Computed example of a mutant assay.
Amino acid sequence: MLDFSQYKTVLFDCDGVILDSNRIKTQAFYQTALPYGEEFATRLVEYHVGHGGISRYVKLKYFLTDILNQPPSENLFNDLVHTYAAHVMEGLLQAQVEPSLETLRCTFPDASWGVVSGGDQNELRQVFREKGIADWFQIGIYGSPDTKEMILSQLLRAGSPASSILFIGDSRYDYEVAQAYDLDFVFVSQWSEFEGGLDFFRDQSIPCIRALEQLVRANPGPFC
């Protein structure tokens, strides 16, 4: 099992890692597209699930141009974004926080934590404040409209060398971003919507865990 203590910096994806929110966002995409018909709503959900970790802005633009085959419309796009955000915020405020997250935070008090998410940055920060976990992430809570690549570029310029950073995610995209910046990666499966994810990551010899509890058990230390 991974020696978690070797990392000075730990970066987390949010949906499916910190929060049990993947299904919430999948349902929000479906409800947002449903006024255009069940077929179009289903196609958006399929695109969303197949592109986990990418921002809503990319997915809703794809819905307009590639699924509805409509010319770009700023007003329609903004309406879709606002509708989706309303569905998501209601669900995120009720989403479960990963049960072992606080214990992991206490077990490694000297590690600096940050969030690198495809979710809307302002939305994430509000939800984390409401849930009382914002202060656990000293590096910051980052999300769209910046891409994960943009966020990581900024963080690496500002601080730790890549060799001391661990990225914990639940999607292929998370892994590809970590790989692009030479970061170690751990795949968390319990809430992931990446079909075939365990087989994919095992083939890549990437550490896989079901939940963060496994990191706590494998790396005993001080507890809260």
Rank of each mutant, 00 (worst) to 15 (best):
D13C: 07
S55Y: 05
S189W: 07
L76F: 11
I18K: 10
E39F: 00
S205F: 07
L60N: 05
K25D: 02
W191R: 06
D120P: 00
S171K: 07
I168P: 13
E213W: 01
A158E: 15
Q138K: 13
F187K: 04
D170G: 03
D110M: 08
P161H: 01
E74Y: 05
P72H: 09
Y181D: 10
G197Y: 09
S160H: 08
E102Y: 12
K25I: 01
V97N: 06
S117P: 15
F194M: 11
R56D: 02
Q214G: 04
T103N: 08
E102T: 15
S144F: 09
L104P: 13
D110N: 14
S100I: 03
L68S: 02
D135R: 07
V10F: 01
E176K: 13
G221N: 03
R125E: 14
I139C: 11
G169V: 11
L183F: 10
L76G: 03
F187W: 12
P72K: 05
L215D: 09
P72L: 07
C106W: 08
L212V: 08
S164T: 15
K25T: 00
V188D: 12
T9V: 15
D135W: 04
L183V: 09
C14K: 06
D203T: 09
R157W: 05
H51F: 06
M150E: 14
A95N: 02
D170A: 03
T103D: 08
A218I: 00
R217V: 15
R202D: 08
S5D: 10
P35F: 01
A218R: 00
D13I: 11
I67M: 04
H87F: 13
S205I: 06
A33C: 04
L19T: 01
M1D: 07
T65A: 04
Y142Q: 08
Q70R: 13
D146V: 03
Y62H: 15
L2S: 03
Q126Y: 13
L92G: 00
I67T: 07
L166C: 09
A85F: 03
Q126L: 15
L44Q: 13
E193K: 14
S100K: 05
I67Q: 05
Y173D: 09
E38C: 01
T26W: 01
P71W: 00
V177A: 10
A28G: 07
K61M: 04
F223N: 08
L166E: 10
N122S: 06
Q31L: 14
L2R: 09
C208T: 14
F200K: 07
G140D: 13
E195S: 13
A162W: 00
G37D: 06
V186D: 09
A158H: 14
A162L: 02
A41P: 08
L101R: 07
I139R: 12
I206V: 15
T107W: 10
K61T: 15
G169W: 13
T32R: 05
Y7D: 12
A178C: 09
I139A: 11
F128Q: 10
G221P: 05
P99Y: 00
D79L: 11
V58G: 04
Y84P: 01
T147W: 10
A95H: 02
Q179Y: 12
A178W: 08
P71C: 00
T26F: 02
R172C: 08
D3R: 10
V58T: 12
A33W: 02
L183S: 12
N75E: 10
L104D: 06
A85C: 04
S163P: 00
